[in-house]
């Protein structure tokens, strides 16, 4: 792959992640009633505990949102624990289950 193609691919990935970040931030604010502005939701910040303070009920809501918003059904608790750490890990989860672009 040429350097130009590499850069084009990287640019495409940035756009893809930025779009997903926006959608997930919206879910946190609109579905989980997180009282934060969009720009406050840093992509690597912890979602649970001391971070944005989500709890186990929010986790259930997030599972539902993943299915309704992204058609993603995840039942494995190990995967969920890892993927619900931050917005970035949630984006990884969504991209990992996405079909070829």
């Amino acid at each position: 792959m040429s350097e130009t193609t590499d850069l084009a691919e990287m640019t495409r990935r940035v756009a893809q992640r930025e779009e997903l970040l926006g959608r997930l931030r919206k879910i946190l604010i609109e579905h989980l009633q997180l009282r934060r502005e969009v720009d406050e939701l840093d992509p690597d910040a912890p979602l649970f505990g001391s971070g944005f303070g989500l709890d186990s009920l929010d986790a259930v809501e997030l599972v539902v949102c993943l299915e309704t918003e992204f058609g993603l059904r995840v039942n494995d608790p190990t995967v969920l624990r890892q993927s619900f750490r931050s917005l970035n890990t949630m984006i990884d989860l969504v991209l990992g289950h996405a079909g070829p672009a």
């Binding site: 590499d6 990287m10 990935r13 940035v14 992640r17 930025e18 992509p43 690597d44 750490r85 931050s86 970035n88 890990t89 984006i91 990884d92 991209l95």
Partner: peptide, 21 residues
Amino acid sequence: AVAHSGLELASGAAAVHTLSA
């Protein structure tokens, strides 16, 4: 604008990639 994981960067001669924490 490019602060995302999954990117291939460089620092000097080092190939660097970005990760989700």
